[in-house]
Design a protein around this nucleic acid. Sequence first.
DNA 1: TCCATATGTCGAGACTAATCGACATATTTG
DNA 2: CAAATATGTCGATTAGTCTCGACATATGGA
Lengths: 123, 123
Amino acid sequence: MESEQAILAFAALAQSTRLDVFRLLIEHEPEGLPAGDIARHMAVPHNTMSTHLAVLTRAGLIEAERHSRSIIYRAKLDAVRELAGYLVKDCCGGRPEICAPLIADLTPCCTPRNGAIKEAAHD
Amino acid sequence: MESEQAILAFAALAQSTRLDVFRLLIEHEPEGLPAGDIARHMAVPHNTMSTHLAVLTRAGLIEAERHSRSIIYRAKLDAVRELAGYLVKDCCGGRPEICAPLIADLTPCCTPRNGAIKEAAHD
DNA sequence: TCCATATGTCGAGACTAATCGACATATTTG
DNA sequence: CAAATATGTCGATTAGTCTCGACATATGGA
């Protein structure tokens, strides 16, 4: 991931409405949500929300797909992984002794049962 | 980590000079760098840099310590871990099947040799 | 104490982002 | 094709950010 893309992603998430939308869409993985539902959920006018969704899309954090009259938005989990990777790998900078403890601290949070990684990876 | 703090951190990193400063300070862990050196390194006036450093400090990403006439800035690696954790754990939201592959993808990047985690954790 | 060095604070101008009413476009239904 | 629904675009206003000159504060040495 390049710095320019990372800056777009950071800027997109540095706004409370957009951060909330992003989290909402992650909760609704993998079905996604139509733009109108998102706007209603956040109590924001549809055109304001449209702008926010465009920012998140340009940042590569979400993606849109037309489904009849509605446009369904979905979080791009790859983007989360890339951004977290940018944060962490960047710290490495050829110095795993700095980065390793960060990873070590992150790992136990999301591997509650054995085999979870392999199962999910099949997706 | 709370959303408000995460927004401060995202906003701080969503600016090229500040992102570069943050990366520079991580390279210079654990000694840190005086404010003047940072400004010269980035070819930015000292007062402009002072403002950027204040933003990064308020966001909790770096910390300052006076050392005679100079003020030494250092990256807070805890903050990187917390921010990456916010990004990733937030995705979990009680759904490890989403989060596990993210972690799995992140882990190999920074564990080039066996025991690196344990060694570094001693620090 | 006076000067040099190192850094921070203030204020103004330029630029960018956020919000939302009004209008435009796309899709389905009658 | 007309009306209803769902979403996007435009333009204006307001608010916030970035930058930097000028000034202020803090430290060390002559």
